[in-house]
Design a protein around this nucleic acid. Structure first.
Length: 882
RNA sequence: GCGGCGGUGGCGGAACGGUAGACGCGGGGCCCUCAAAAGGCCCUGUCCGCAAGGGCGUGUGGGUUCGAUUCCCACCCGCCGCACCA
């Protein structure tokens, strides 16, 4: 190099950021014809070709839209390295789509309500409104400093009244449709702190803060009826382009099971108890009946019996245990008898009722029929309590099922039930398939799978049961007794009951309260003059709902609001949604695989049913990025291994930070941060910049080129020797980067540009300035989505001030991707023995000749018989010898 | 237990069934320099060999194939979900 030049991102980056901000480069209007949008700018300049592009992309009203969206950040403190990663990925995609000629919507907002901000406020004494504002300012500033191409005209915060006004509107729509409702639910209550506790805040049945024994209280809570959508949430997963593991998690979460609901009658009380079972084929093996401790009928069943006190104690103990304790997998089965019986509808047997904590109130009906012969849990319980165990399915000879085959007598079967002894002496429980026995003459001998539907239709006919589908999914509890959230827009009137706040009175603004610490009821309840209001229906005295909404409600529709973010007369104009939705590429952490992504899908389906949307799925494609670790561990303050994006950006510049985080690993994988690795990327960008600066200088010296006087680099199509080699490499890189961007392989895309730079550098003494300029221009063009500032700089430097982001994405010339000679791989018995140059158009016969003639192939053929020759044109010849 | 993902040099990672280890980091040598920083050039899976070359190598064991990191079967290990779900 002629003289020492330094790559100075601190000088380069703010300059381009200022330009993009001043020109509002990344804003895109809803009206496709509107001037000043990025797409239109591209259209204007698309006549010049650059970076080897042929066939400029046209944009305009007809241009394809692309909605590229990263999950909005929760503004707490400063952005961390995970934010840098997700927005680097999203920005690369947004830039790529723009330069493919699409109109790209790439907005930003903040998920600003929520517990962490509130807890932080309680701890520091800074009002959540203020700490959130400070955090948002920090995020906004850093997004600018990272050079993320955001349409800032659509910025929003979910805590702003102009946003949550519409969150409340959606809530009212759901309420109107019966999809939001109030219901009593069992919640944990600390009698000392006078507060509801989350399950996580209960340790060993005691309050984690004061140690008081926790009680269970039935409290009214707000729910959203997501279970109505279980089937559609499951079925529609098939039509969206999401990672398989995310779909699997959602399927598991929904937990669909097919079976039957069967009614067991308690004659003493005259009450029918339905149970859900996936195994109606084993009904004849039901020898007892179990209810969950939370089952509302349990006290009633035990009342005035000798079991009353024991049952009461057991239930109380079970209720105060933490979910974690109760679900500990192989804990011994516990329970107590209720002293009552129910009738097994298939055979009229009276079977005893128990209450046991292995039965969950949340699943099915909160009561089960127990079939100890064919269910492991029921078997464990029966064994512990000396209950009869009956085999109703034979184990086919040689089959392996749940039970292990044992020699001799099945000693485990201490059942006092005469029917237990059949010819099958293998151990129970048996959970596999086989012919029914000990059931009913109509079914005995039939395969259980075959008999199952027959039994169900028989039950149906008798009015004792019916086919049924059950889901694990529960309705979504959305009310929170917390301050920093969206107020639920209803009031309670003594005369009219619960009354929705009329739409024109929205938003119900969150009042400023001084004491927002949780205290058993919502902190909002303390804001007396806010709570006291008048009934919208009768104008009589009424009180406002003081619970707020779960933060996940806020983030279940924000992607819709971006489409029409500044609309003050509606949540959105349907035309705006038609223009942008669904999101074409959604990007975020896999930690939201279930909750956020399920809720957002639910909202879309519900809003579509209400006529507000004309699509069912919000996110057509999803990409989940992996975590960034340091020294193999999750970054955390307590470990002291936090790498702050701000410090990296300050030291190396945003381009280096962004490129590095995309280079270390495929973005969907976890990646370990290495300080040395960052240096490597910084060297690479520095080398690219220096070589480009040198090339521009050389060009100026030879051609008298000065800024603004040359067209963007023309696609060179000729040349020979080193020039041709470099030209080919550039086209190879175009092809490689284009392919890799489509499959999110940013690491290999950046590697390809590195190769192009390495060749440019190696050949720089042997090629013309024009070749060099084309190669480096192409490198900058291809790298722009990852390192926009330095690439804009280089592109302008080499192309008379032309703007990289306005250039169509380069296209590889197929003719230059092919070679007239290549290195033929010569194998003997599949082992590489030699490589020889071969003409691209050689026939298979000629290739065989070439291979056999290769010196080292000769050596391995010596004295052997050629059995076969495999020819893969363009690649290799494999000679098989004996 | 069920489901998903993964296991390749000293490290991060490449590789349409066809040259294993691209690219980068780290390491070694050299150039530039009074010296250093910065930068540049070369080498770098492993073993044998002066070299040419050869042996061995993608968690383990089988299989399919002319050829397997890639496809199939069984297993081991790690990570992530879910988990007494009837």
């Amino acid at each position: 190099m002629s003289e020492q030049r330094r790559y100075e991102p601190q000088e380069i980056e703010p300059r381009w950021q200022a330009l993009w901000a001043a020109e509002r480069t990344w804003e895109v209007a809803n009206d496709a014809d509107a001037p000043g949008v990025a797409g239109a700018a591209l259209a204007r300049s698309a006549s010049g070709s650059a970076g080897g592009a042929s066939g400029a992309v046209s944009t305009g009203p007809q241009a394809t839209k692309s909605y590229v969206l990263e999950m909005l950040p929760y503004p707490s403190g400063e952005p961390h390295i995970g934010h840098l990663k997700v927005y680097s990925v999203g920005d690369a995609i947004a830039h790529f789509h723009r330069r493919l000629g699409r109109r790209v919507l790439h907005p930003m907002g903040y998920d600003a309500f929520g517990l962490p901000a509130e807890n932080h406020a309680i701890k520091t004494g800074v009002h959540p409104r203020d700490s959130t504002a400070a955090s948002i300012a920090s995020f906004r500033r850093q997004f600018h400093e990272w050079g993320i191409s955001i349409d800032w005209s659509r910025e929003l915060g979910t805590h702003e009244p102009r946003y949550y006004r519409w969150t409340q509107w959606i809530f009212l729509e759901l309420l109107r449709a019966g999809l939001a409702y109030r219901k009593e639910a069992a919640v944990k209550w600390c009698p000392h702190d006078q507060t509801v506790l989350a399950n996580e805040q209960v340790l060993d049945g005691h309050c984690e803060r004061c140690g008081a024994e926790v009680e269970i209280r039935q409290l009214e809570q707000w729910f959203l009826r997501i279970t109505d959508y279980a089937e559609r949430l499951l079925g529609d997963l098939d039509g969206i382009d999401w990672p398989e593991h995310v779909k699997t998690m959602q399927r598991n979460w929904i937990g669909r099971s097919e079976g039957a609901e069967v009614t067991f009658r308690c004659e003493a009380l005259g009450v029918d108890y339905p149970v859900f079972t996936t195994r109606p084929d084993t009904l004849f093996g039901a020898t007892f009946f179990v209810m969950a401790p939370e089952h509302p009928d349990v006290p009633r069943l035990a009342a005035r019996t000798e079991h009353e006190q024991v049952v009461h104690d057991y239930v109380n103990h079970a209720l105060t245990e933490s979910g974690e304790e109760r679900s500990a997998a192989d804990r011994p089965k516990t329970g107590v008898a209720l002293g009552r019986t129910v009738t097994n509808p298939v055979n009229g047997e009276q079977i005893p009722m128990y209450v046991a904590d292995y039965v969950l109130m949340e699943y099915g009906t909160g009561a089960i029929m127990a079939v100890p012969g064919h269910d492991e849990r029921d078997h464990a319980f029966a064994t512990a309590f000396g209950l009869p165990i009956r085999r109703v399915i034979e184990e086919p000879a040689g089959a392996t099922g749940g039970g292990q085959a044992v020699e001799g007598q099945a000693g485990e079967q201490k059942a006092g039930d005469g029917k237990a002894g059949t010819g099958d002496t293998r151990e129970l429980p048996y959970t596999g398939d086989g012919p029914l026995v000990n059931s009913d003459p109509r079914f005995d001998g039939k395969g259980n799978r075959e008999a199952l539907p027959e039994i169900v239709s028989w039950l149906d006919h008798e009015g004792k049961g019916h086919a049924s589908v059950n889901y694990r999914l529960r309705d979504w509890l959305v009310s929170r007794q917390r301050y920093w959230g969206c107020p639920i827009p209803v009031v309670y009137c003594e005369r009219c009951g619960m009354v929705p706040v009329p739409e024109q009175d929205l938003p119900v603004e969150l009042p400023d309260v001084e004491d927002y610490a949780p205290q058993g009821r919502s902190p909002l309840a303390a804001a007396e003059d806010w709570v006291a209001t008048s009934c919208p229906a009768c104008e009589g005295p009424a009180r406002r709902e003081t619970d707020t909404m779960d933060t996940f409600v806020d983030s279940s529709w924000y992607f819709l609001r971006y489409c029409d973010a500044n609309n003050d007369s509606a949540a959105w104009d349907p035309a705006a949604l038609r223009q942008w939705m669904p999101v074409d590429q959604y990007i975020g952490g896999v930690e939201h695989a279930i909750l956020h992504l399920m809720y957002a899908r639910f909202f879309c389906k519900a809003l579509a049913d209400l006529g507000h949307l004309d699509f069912q799925e919000p996110f057509r494609a999803l990409f989940t990025q992996g975590m960034v670790t340091k020294d193999g561990a999750k970054m955390s303050k307590s470990r002291g291994n936090v790498v702050s994006p701000a410090s990296i950006v300050e030291r190396y510049g945003a381009d280096t930070a962004r490129c590095y985080i995309l280079f270390i690993a495929p973005p969907d994988q976890d990646a370990d941060w290495s300080d040395d690795g960052v240096e490597g990327i910084h060297r690479f960008l520095g080398r690219l910049w220096r070589l480009a600066a040198e090339t521009a200088e050389r060009g100026a010296a030879i051609e008298g080129v000065v800024d603004g006087q040359v067209e963007p680099a023309q696609a060179a199509t000729g040349g020979e020797g080193a020039d041709l080699e470099l030209l080919r490499k550039a086209h190879w890189a175009i092809d490689k980067v284009s392919t890799d961007l489509r499959r999110f392989a940013f690491n290999t895309a950046i590697a390809a540009v590195m190769e192009l730079l390495n060749d440019s550098s190696r050949l720089r003494e042997q090629v013309t300035v024009e070749s060099q300029r084309f190669a480096l221009s192409t490198a900058a063009s291809l790298l722009f989505p990852f390192a926009p500032h330095v690439c804009a700089e280089i592109y302008a430097l080499l192309n008379g001030g032309a703007r990289a982001w306005e250039q169509p994405w380069p296209q590889a010339d197929p003719a230059l991707l092919e070679r007239d000679t290549y290195e033929l791989v010569c194998q003997v018995n599949g082992k590489l023995r030699d490589r020889v140059p071969a003409p691209a158009d050689a026939t298979p016969e000629q290739l065989k000749e070439l291979c056999r003639a290769a010196p080292n192939v000769q050596a391995h053929l010596d004295g052997k018989e050629i059995v076969k020759e495999i020819v893969v044109p363009g690649k290799l010849v494999n000679v098989v010898v004996r």
